[in-house]
C-alpha cells in the first residue's frame, strides 16, 4: 500500500515536467520543420507559469470548477495508471474531466467557445470509442483489464499492431494536431479565436494546459505498455509515435468534423475487428 502511494505521488509529480518538456520539443521541432529557429525547449513552462500568475478574469463560476476537475481527473488517471489499476476505469476517469471541460466552455456564452466546445465533443466522439476498443483488444490478448497483468505480456505490439496505429491516431486527435485541429484552432488559425479555450483565461488556462500534458502522457504511456518487456523500448516507441504525429501535424491541412468522424470511426472499427480476428488467428 505504502509503495503504491509513493509511486502514485512520484508519477503525478513527474508527469507534468515530462509533458511540458515534450511540448517544448514539439514546438522546437515544428519550428525546425518550418525552417524557423523556434522557442527554447522549456518555453511551455514559461507560458504556464506566466499564465498562473496573471490576473484572474472570469465569466462565470462554473468554469473555475470545470478547469479544476479537468486537471484533477487527469492527475488521478495518471496516478491510477502508475499504480497499475484497471485500464477501463482510467478511461472512465479521464472522460469525466473531459465532460466538465467541455461543459465549462459551453456554459460561457461566447459563440467562439461554444462552437469550439461542440467540436471538442465531436473529437471526443471520435477518439473515446477508440480508447475503449484498445482496452477491449488488450483484454482479448491478455485476458485482463488490470495493467499489472497486462504488463506481464511483454510484447503486445506484435499482437496489436493495428491498435497501435489507432493509439497514434488518438494521440493526434487528443493533442489537437492537424488534420484534427478542430476545437481550438491551435496553429494561429484564428477563425474560432481559441475555440473551446476562448473563455478560459489566466490561471485557469494554465490548469488546462497542465491537464493536457497529463493526458498526453497518459496516451503515450498506453503506447509504451505495448512493449512492457523492456519499458525503455516502450518509451522509445511512444516517443517515435509522438514524432510521427508532429510530422503529420506539419504536413497536413485541417479537415472537417464530418470527415473526422467518418474517418476515425470507419478506421477504428475496421482495425479493431481485423486486429482481434488476427489475435484469434495467431493462437
Amino acid at each position: 500500500m505504502m509503495r503504491e502511494i509513493i509511486i502514485f505521488v512520484i508519477a503525478i509529480a513527474l508527469a507534468p515536467f515530462i509533458g511540458g518538456f515534450l511540448n517544448g520539443i514539439d514546438r522546437k521541432l515544428t519550428a525546425f520543420i518550418q525552417g524557423r529557429y523556434g522557442p527554447p525547449v522549456w518555453q511551455p513552462f514559461y507560458d504556464v507559469i506566466k499564465l498562473l500568475y496573471k490576473q484572474k478574469i472570469l465569466v462565470n463560476d462554473f468554469q473555475v470548477f470545470s478547469a479544476y476537475i479537468y486537471l484533477l481527473t487527469a492527475i488521478l488517471s495518471i496516478g491510477l495508471f502508475a499504480i497499475k489499476a484497471d485500464l477501463l476505469m482510467i478511461l472512465f476517469v479521464m472522460s469525466v474531466g473531459l465532460a466538465f471541460y467541455i461543459a465549462g466552455a459551453l456554459s460561457t456564452k461566447s459563440p467562439y467557445s461554444q462552437v469550439g466546445a461542440q467540436r471538442e465533443l465531436m473529437q471526443m466522439l471520435a477518439y473515446e470509442p477508440m480508447l475503449i476498443f484498445f482496452a477491449i483488444a488488450v483484454y482479448n490478448v491478455t485476458g485482463s483489464f488490470n495493467l499489472g497483468q497486462i504488463m506481464k505480456h511483454g510484447r503486445l505490439l506484435f499482437d496489436l499492431p493495428l491498435m497501435f496505429i489507432l493509439l497514434g491516431l488518438v494521440l493526434t486527435i487528443k493533442l489537437k494536431k492537424s488534420p484534427f485541429d478542430l476545437s481550438t484552432s491551435e496553429h494561429a488559425h484564428q477563425e474560432l479565436v481559441r475555440g473551446i479555450l476562448t473563455d478560459y483565461s489566466g490561471p485557469y488556462l494554465a490548469l488546462i494546459h497542465i491537464a493536457d500534458w497529463y493526458e498526453m502522457i497518459l496516451i503515450l504511456a498506453m503506447i509504451a505498455i505495448l512493449w512492457s518487456q523492456n519499458l525503455l523500448i516502450g518509451v522509445l516507441i511512444a516517443l517515435a509515435t509522438f514524432f510521427v504525429d508532429i510530422v503529420i501535424d506539419n504536413i497536413t491541412a485541417r479537415m472537417t468534423v464530418k470527415w473526422m468522424l467518418a474517418f476515425s470511426w470507419s478506421i477504428s472499427i475496421l482495425f479493431t475487428i481485423i486486429n482481434i480476428a488476427y489475435i484469434y488467428f495467431r493462437r
Binding site: A188, V193, R194, D199, S201
Partner: peptide, 15 residues
C-alpha cells in the same frame, strides 16, 4: 521568427 522570444500570436484578449 518572433517565436524565438516566446512571442505567440493569439487571437484572444483574454489570453
Amino acid at each position: 521568427d518572433m517565436e524565438r522570444f516566446g512571442m505567440v500570436n493569439v487571437g484572444n484578449p483574454k489570453h
